[in-house]
Lab assay of single mutants.
Amino acid sequence: GPMASDKRPRTAFTAEQLQRLKAEFQTNRYLTEQRRQSLAQELGLNESQIKIWFQNKRAK
């Protein structure tokens, strides 16, 4: 629909990254900035991508 703007492409996470994020989520529903930074480095992701993933996951 018209609401779907092309400005922010959805990140396609790899299965491996998703597995890691899910495991982290089961341990911590809320990430500290430090955890998020190390996860971002570990997974080669953007911190904001991880932050948003957690927000979306909590919203469900």
Rank of each mutant, 00 (worst) to 15 (best):
G1N: 07
G1P: 15
G1A: 04
P2F: 03
M3V: 15
A4R: 04
A4M: 06
S5G: 12
S5Y: 01
S5T: 13
S5C: 14
D6I: 04
D6K: 04
D6R: 03
R8V: 15
R8Y: 14
R8T: 15
P9F: 05
P9N: 06
P9Q: 05
R10T: 14
R10A: 14
R10V: 14
T11I: 10
T11K: 13
T11H: 10
T11D: 10
T11V: 11
F13C: 03
F13I: 05
F13P: 04
T14R: 04
T14A: 03
A15S: 10
A15Q: 11
A15F: 10
A15V: 11
E16W: 12
E16K: 11
E16M: 12
E16S: 10
E16G: 07
Q17E: 02
Q17I: 08
Q17P: 00
L18T: 06
L18Y: 08
Q19W: 07
Q19E: 09
R20G: 04
R20F: 04
R20L: 05
L21I: 02
A23Q: 13
E24R: 01
E24F: 03
E24I: 05
E24D: 02
E24V: 06
F25E: 01
F25I: 03
Q26I: 10
Q26K: 12
Q26P: 01
Q26T: 11
Q26L: 08
T27C: 13
T27L: 13
N28H: 09
R29F: 05
R29D: 06
R29T: 04
R29H: 08
Y30R: 07
Y30S: 06
L31R: 01
L31A: 04
T32A: 04
E33D: 12
E33V: 14
Q34N: 08
Q34F: 09
R36I: 12
Q37H: 11
S38Q: 13
S38H: 08
A40P: 01
Q41F: 09
E42D: 06
E42G: 03
E42W: 03
L43H: 01
L43D: 00
L43S: 02
L43R: 00
G44F: 04
L45G: 01
L45V: 10
L45Q: 01
E47L: 04
E47K: 04
E47V: 10
E47I: 07
S48T: 12
Q49Y: 10
I50C: 01
K51I: 13
K51T: 13
I52V: 09
F54T: 00
Q55Y: 14
Q55E: 08
Q55K: 15
Q55G: 05
N56A: 12
N56H: 10
N56K: 14
K57S: 11
K57D: 02
R58P: 02
R58C: 06
R58A: 07
R58S: 06
A59M: 11
A59I: 09
K60Q: 10
